[in-house]
Amino acid sequence: MEESAEQRSRPHGRTRAAGTRVLVVLACAAITLAGVFLLRDVIAPLAVALVIVVICSPASTALARRGWPRSIGVAAIVVLAYSVLLSMGALVWIAGVQFTRLLRDLSPGGDLAHAAGQLDGWVSGALGPPGADASGAGASGAAVSGLLRLVAGASSAAVGIAVALFLVCAYVVVMAVDAGRYQRASIVFGAGRAETIARIARLNSDIRRYYVVNTVFGAIVATIDGLALWWLGVPAPLLWAVLAFVTNFIPNIGFVIGLIPPAILALAVGGWPLLLGVVAVYCLVNVVLQVFVQPKFVSDAVGLSLTLSFFAVVFWTVIIGPVGALLAVPLTLLARDLLLGGRDDDTVWLRWVSGDRGAIPSSHEIARGSPRENIRRAGRRIPWNQHGIRRRPS
């Protein structure tokens, strides 16, 4: 009787121990995230550089397999990483040129001065005192002055952006050197760290596949949106195409962010018909591709549930700023591997809930095969007779 009572108390003890462990993990995570939030200006460039190096690291691996020296592989990573940064800089430059032209057109005497006056009139009507008059050149000048104040405020962050880019470039070099050394980890440690090395390799592969999927879909969406806006007559279609490409890397809500600026401009230029045309194009292209099609590919590529990927955008944006929206999925994958990297049933269950389809308890794994064969194999493990169910012989 004493042994049976002790056995009955063991599950409750394990439950309490598991609950205590969860509380400890959550407390440590909260402290860590608070530190990341305070150091976000330093950690954000580090995260960007890490993602870029992970994306470019297969070049070094391919060269190492062909017998090239490790220094050549490191140089290949640096060259590819800087090429990615230059491509990003080119997109920013194109967007900046288009934005400057748009400001010039919105200035008094420009081609879109009437649109500026109409926009300022709407804002004054919504926020200004009753009876305020906001028409003509005065309204146009007020709208442009507001835009210029916005540009002046953004220029104060230019120094911070320059410092962040310098840190990214420096991080890329040192991480590329370390990446060349880490490729020998499987040779140095052998089977002793095989599981950890496999997890890191799988994480890197998931990050690369995620950005490949987003780049392909982003190029498709940006091309279609840019051509459609040009055909509809919306000013600066190339600027909005670049914006659509960049916001494509923000899961689920990126298309809304990319829709708002051209929609407002379309309303000012062409009224409600043009606005409805822009919204119809974005709903047809962006909603179908980004909301229904792309998340399916992203979920299959990285093993994250749609709910978790959506929450990750908000969470990492709060923690490390706007860059967190672009790095939400990779950072979530890294956090999941750090917190849920074990193979016990509780950890595997949480990974499965988060969207990892490969998370299967070792005690209930089903051999790969046809669905009929898998069901038959799984049926053998169910104690049918305990429930009075008679299993048909196979």
Rank of each mutant, 00 (worst) to 15 (best):
Q7L: 10
R14G: 03
R16Y: 02
T20V: 09
R21M: 02
V22F: 09
V22E: 01
V24M: 07
V24Q: 10
A27K: 02
R40F: 05
I43Y: 13
A44T: 15
V48M: 14
L50M: 12
S57N: 01
S57M: 00
P58M: 03
A59T: 09
A59D: 05
A62R: 02
A64N: 00
R70W: 00
S71D: 01
A81G: 01
L85R: 01
A90K: 07
W93S: 14
V97C: 10
P108R: 09
L112S: 07
H114F: 15
Q118Y: 14
G121C: 11
S124I: 14
G125N: 06
A126T: 15
L127M: 14
P129G: 07
D133A: 12
G136Y: 10
G136N: 04
A137G: 13
A137P: 13
G138W: 15
L147H: 12
L150P: 04
V151F: 06
A152S: 15
A158L: 11
A162N: 09
L165R: 09
V173I: 12
Q183S: 01
A185C: 04
I187E: 08
I187P: 04
G190V: 03
A191L: 13
A191W: 10
A191C: 08
G192N: 07
A194Q: 13
E195T: 12
A198D: 08
R199E: 02
R199G: 08
I200S: 07
R202C: 01
S205D: 05
D206G: 07
D206M: 12
I207W: 05
I207R: 06
R208H: 04
R209A: 10
R209G: 07
Y210P: 00
V212Y: 03
N214E: 06
G218A: 05
A219W: 12
A222S: 13
I224C: 03
L229Y: 12
W230H: 10
A236V: 07
A236W: 02
P237R: 03
L238F: 09
V242L: 03
A244H: 09
A244F: 11
T247H: 15
I250L: 06
I250N: 01
P251Y: 11
G254F: 01
F255T: 08
I257C: 06
L259Y: 09
P261H: 10
L265T: 12
L265P: 06
A268D: 09
V269A: 07
L275A: 04
G277E: 13
A280Q: 05
V281R: 06
V281N: 04
Y282S: 13
Q290Y: 12
Q294Y: 06
F297V: 12
V302L: 03
L304N: 08
G324Y: 04
G324P: 09
L326I: 13
R336P: 02
R336G: 07
G341E: 07
D345I: 03
T347E: 06
W352R: 15
V353G: 07
V353I: 14
G358L: 03
P361I: 00
S362M: 06
G369E: 03
S370F: 08
P371V: 10
P371E: 05
I375A: 13
I375W: 10
R377M: 11
H387R: 08
